[in-house]
Amino acid sequence: MTFRTDFVDGGTAIAPLLPAGATVGLVTGVAATTVGLDPVQALSMSVFVYSPTVMLAAFKLLDAGAPVAVVVAGALVVGVRFSMLSLSIAPYFERDSTRSKWAMAYFLWTPTYALSIERFSAEPGTSRTGFYLGTAIPLWVTVQAALVAGALFGASVPAGWQLGFVVPLAFIALLMRFLSDRAAKVAALAAGVLAVAGAGLPLGTGLLVAAVGGTAAGLAIDRLGGR
């Protein structure tokens, strides 16, 4: 399998998720205007930071009048999950050049991560950078374009459409692909319950606790031989 064919496969895999990416971009663009960013600032921020969740957390703190140190620290706590994704996908890029690793790291985001992990473990012969970038680049373009649209046109989509729900639906579709054995199911259930219980924790730390706790629960079942 070549870089080119696997790049196309990646593009095919990400295509159904692009509406969800567009929704996230749109919401982030609208949020950027509410804290006083102009479209150019919003797009620059999104290109450099490339994480709507981190940006939304930063906007919330800026809006509350928090000092720079608190804004940055608070928003980065939300981004700590990236280090979990980084650890999880790292073995697949171990033999890549440093330059390639640096490029892959820039595009590391949940949908790209999830599709790539699934493909890499199912088909070891995949051109990993090809497939990964095939999912990452269309998603990047979609998110940035939608973010500019959101920053320019603001909140003209009626709230009654509940378009934001597209995002959890996309994650549901991805989640079902990872429930391969009993330990994975336990990991998901434990993480889900912990995430709901921790939903009130500040700055999305509940998500982090849930991801770590769920992984530990899966590992425990694995070690007990209950796969």
């Binding site: 990872f178 429930l179 993480a191 995430a195």
Partner: peptide, 11 residues
């Protein structure tokens, strides 16, 4: 188990 846990924690 990271993928299943992260996805569920988001969903």
């Amino acid at each position: 188990y990271v993928p299943a846990a992260v996805m569920a924690a988001l969903v």
